[in-house]
Design a protein around this nucleic acid. Structure first.
Lengths: 210, 210
DNA sequence: ATAAAAAATTTTGTATACATAATAAAGAAA
DNA sequence: TTTCTTTATTATGTATACAAAATTTTTTAT
C-alpha cells in the first residue's frame, strides 16, 4: 500500500503563508494576525496557529512575546550569516561527495563546459545563473546527508525571497567554479572544499559593501 | 522599562517535554500522545499541540501523518550526518573567528595548556572533556554568527541526549586540538579550519565502526 | 479456536469560546 | 491644543468541543 498523505489543512496553510511571503503579500516587519489570516484563507484559527509556530521555529516569523508576531526583518548582517553558514555546509557536502567517490556528479560538472569568459549575452548569463544555482543545490543533495538538505532548504527559501540579483558577475565566478570542478575531478576533497568555501566567502565579503 | 518575558505555558510545556526527552522519560520510537501529555503536565491540549509542532520542526519528533506522532529514532547514519554538519559549521565559525582577529579567544586556548599526553587519571580526563566541549561551543559563540548559534543549539541537544560516551581518547584528540590552536595563533584561518574539520571527520569515521 | 465483521474507544485535526493583556479611541482636565 | 485617564476594541494564549479516521475490543460466524 502506498501511503497517500492527503495534506492536512495545517500543511496547506503553512505552504500558503510561505507563498504569501515569497509573493511579497507579507512583507518583513508586517504584523502577523492570526484571525485575519484565518479569514483570508477561509479556515479557522487553529491551523493558522500551527503554521505560525512552525514559521517562528523556522526563523521566518519573530515572536515579540507580549508584543505580537511579526514577519522577520533580515538585516544585511543576517544575510551575511546565512551566506557563511551555507559556505560551511556546502563545503563539507562537497567533501563528502568526493570522498565517497560519487561519480554521477560528473554530469553536473559537464554543464559548465559550454561557458567561457567573457560572458556578455544576457540570455547566456541567465542560463548560467540557472546552472549555477543547480550546481550548488546538487552538491547538498548528492552528499547523501539528509539532515543537511532540510537545513539548507530553510535558508535557501530566505535567500530566494529576500536576496535580489546576483552579487558577482559570471566573469568572476566561472573561473572559480571551474577550479572547484577540477579539484573534484582530481579527487582532492580538501582542496575542492577550500575552493568552494573561498568562492562563497568572496560573495560574503561583497555583501559587506552594501 | 525592562521587558519581563513571563514565559507562557506553551514555552514551559515545550521545555518540559525536552526535559522529558533528555531524562529518557520519552524514548525514541515512543508514540506522542497529546491528551496524555496534557494531563501529565496539568495543562490543556493547546499548549501541548504548540510544543509538538515546534518539536517536529526541530526534528525531535516525527509526524507519520495519519499514523500519529513519534519520538524520532536517530539511526547511526543520522548521528553521522549531524557530526558532518557540525564539522562544516564549526569549521567556518573558526575561520570567521580568526579572520576577524578576535583576540579574546586566546583565553580559551590557554585552557589546554595544562594538559599533556598520555592522560590516564580519570578525573583529569573528565576535566579535559569539559574543556573540550566548551572549546567547541565557544568557537560557534565567538564567531558572532547568531544564526549558527541557533542551528547548532538544536543538534547539540540531540547529541547530548542520544550520544553516550566519548568516541576517541584524549591521547588522540589533544594533539589535534593543539594543532588547531597553533594554526589559530598563526592567524591562518584556512589551515585552522581544515584541521578542525579533519578533527571532527575523524570522529565521523569512527562512528562508522559502531 | 480462528477468522471475519461490527461496535466501541482513542486520537488527531479542526473549530470555537473566552479571559487577560495590549492597543487604540474617546473623553476630561490642564 | 496638549496631556492624562478612562473606556472600548482587538489580539493572543488557553481551554474545550467535536467529527472523521484509526485503533482496539468485542461479538459473531465458521
Amino acid at each position: 500500500m502506498i501511503p497517500v498523505k492527503k495534506s492536512s489543512l495545517k500543511d496547506l496553510v503553512y505552504q500558503q503563508i510561505k507563498l504569501m511571503i515569497s509573493n511579497k503579500d507579507l512583507l518583513p516587519g508586517d504584523k502577523v494576525n492570526r484571525k485575519q489570516l484565518a479569514q483570508l484563507l477561509g479556515v479557522s484559527q487553529t491551523p493558522v496557529q500551527d503554521a505560525i509556530v512552525r514559521l517562528i521555529q523556522e526563523g521566518l516569523f519573530e515572536d515579540k512575546k507580549s508584543n505580537g508576531i511579526y514577519v522577520r526583518v533580515f538585516t544585511n548582517k543576517d544575510m551575511q550569516d546565512i551566506f557563511a553558514l551555507r559556505a560551511g555546509i556546502e563545503g563539507i557536502a562537497l567533501r563528502l561527495c568526493i570522498s565517497k567517490g560519487c561519480e554521477e556528479i560528473e554530469d553536473l560538472f559537464k554543464l559548465f563546459d559550454s561557458f567561457t569568459v567573457p560572458m556578455t549575452d544576457s540570455e547566456e548569463i541567465a542560463r548560467y545563473q540557472k546552472i549555477d544555482r543547480m550546481f550548488h543545490e546538487q552538491i547538498i543533495t548528492r552528499s547523501g546527508n539528509e539532515l543537511m538538505k532540510n537545513f539548507v532548504k530553510d535558508f535557501s527559501f530566505i535567500l530566494r525571497c529576500y536576496h535580489k540579483g546576483l552579487l558577482r558577475h559570471p566573469n568572476e565566478t566561472l573561473p572559480e567554479h571551474l577550479a572547484i570542478i577540477q579539484a573534484a575531478r582530481e579527487k582532492n576533497p580538501e582542496k575542492a572544499q577550500n575552493l568552494l568555501i573561498a568562492h562563497h566567502m568572496a560573495s560574503y565579503e561583497r555583501l559587506s559593501d552594501l
